[in-house]
Amino acid sequence: MADEPKRLRDYGLQSERLLWPTKGPSHFEQEMSADELEHALGLTTLEKAVRWAQTKSMWPDTFGLACCAIEMMSIVSSRYDIARFGMEAFRSSPRQADLLIVSGRVAHKMAAPLRQIYDQMLEPKWVIAMGACASSGGMFNNYTILQGVDRIVPVDIYVPFCPPRPEALMEGIIRLHEAHQAGLPPAYERKQAAAG
């Protein structure tokens, strides 16, 4: 396998023996051969560390569309304080944002700018469809409203209700964090994988 990452041993290094040359193999190492341990520890923790860092500073884009935008503002405010999750930095520029919260109904006229903003965001990027209108068109089943924002952008989390309480939105955000930490790829990657 050409792609398999090289182990430290391949570079002539004996991992922790470097730091503590006299130390013999631990119980843990004896149970689980040293090679496997290195493999498991070294790689997964690094990935997890990156994921952890990403979830703790997932910056949302300010993309308020309708009534839900007011509730989106209130999660930043003093009572709900989204800063606890490292998300207080709402970025006006899509290039600095990681998370697009589609708050409100999307008219067909707004669909093109929305897609443009999404395309301008840097990967990895996530989308939350906030409220019934963004998720499915809500009560507006007519000529002007996009019937669900997932028609134009891949959506990670749907937050129901009209408008969602700030707690509901925060629940959605935390679910997104959990999914990301658990290793679930963002929706656009899943979509690409499904499309082949």
Partner: peptide, 22 residues
């Protein structure tokens, strides 16, 4: 309010409401 290249005038009674069948 509508896009510049929109067809028709939506509040006319003969304009289809559109949307999806429920």
């Amino acid at each position: 309010l509508m896009e510049d290249d929109w067809d028709g005038h939506p509040l006319r009674k003969d304009y289809p409401i559109g949307g999806e069948p429920v």
